[in-house]
């Protein structure tokens, strides 16, 4: 019966209802079906909302990024890239993917991130590279390049971070096995993440190369 909440979430997606609304309804309904009194559900809801405030930490970065953008940060980023010859969208993003993944593997999760790095730096750099090559970009290609910039950040972060021992996921799994009296070793867990991390990098780097070829085909390889 408590699974109705999970079903509600899926239904919400299918009918494209606002996710914030769906999530809240699912939480309230699940709690009620489980027989938790409504006052208690709302209390738990508020308590968890407060505990998870750190999830919204990106708000502190907004003043910095906003001020810099107002003063031409994006223009400056595209300018730098447009000066470098023969650089492509794929190469810019592969480079970022590598830096992001290796950084995360060393515990440097804050090296990237969407509000801090992708929006002010990586997306404009990739767009700048394409503009140097093909001139002004059609909207479709511009949107695709931006989406690729965000994807490179996520893929680099996810498959890099579990190689770092002190990361939440490793600690969580180690704790879980400990509770179940199964001997585990966080360092071994981290090391056994390496094969997947390397594979993910190779696959995505190949896809970025193909993306370059696709742009060439659509927008002409000669350019300026």
């Amino acid at each position: 019966m408590v699974l109705i909440g999970v079903v509600l979430i899926m239904a919400g997606f299918l009918f494209r209802i606002n996710s914030a609304v769906v999530v809240t309804i699912s939480a309230l309904v699940t709690g009620m079906i489980a027989g938790i009194p409504i006052i208690e559900i709302i209390t738990q809801f508020g308590e968890a909302f407060t505990t998870n405030r750190y999830m919204s930490i990106l708000i502190v970065t907004l003043p910095v990024i906003g001020l810099l953008e107002k003063n031409g940060l994006q223009q400056q980023a595209s300018r730098i890239v447009s000066k470098i010859k023969a650089i492509t969208v794929g190469r810019v993003l592969t480079m970022y993917l590598l830096i992001r993944e290796v950084g995360a593997a060393l515990g440097l999760n804050s090296l990237g991130g969407h509000p801090q790095t992708v929006r002010p730096l990586i997306a404009p750099m990739a767009e700048g590279a394409a503009e140097t090559k093909y001139g002004k970009l059609p909207e479709k290609e511009q949107q695709e390049i931006r989406a690729h910039a965000a994807a490179a950040d996520n893929i680099g972060l996810f498959f890099g971070e579990d190689i770092f021992v002190a990361v939440g996921a490793i600690l969580l799994m180690n704790g879980f096995f400990e509770q179940n009296d199964i001997p585990a070793d966080p360092i071994a867990m981290a090391l056994w993440g390496i094969p997947t991390a390397i594979f993910a990098f190779i696959v995505h780097a190949i896809r970025l190369r193909l993306f370059d070829k696709k742009l060439n085909k659509r927008l002409g390889s000669s350019g300026k």
Binding site: L3, S26, A27, N52
Partner: peptide
């Protein structure tokens, strides 16, 4: 993000 983490807590408490 904050709402989702909250949902996770409620799911756990409800035994999902």
């Amino acid at each position: 993000p904050q709402l989702l983490a909250t949902l996770g807590t409620i799911y756990t408490n409800a035994g999902v």
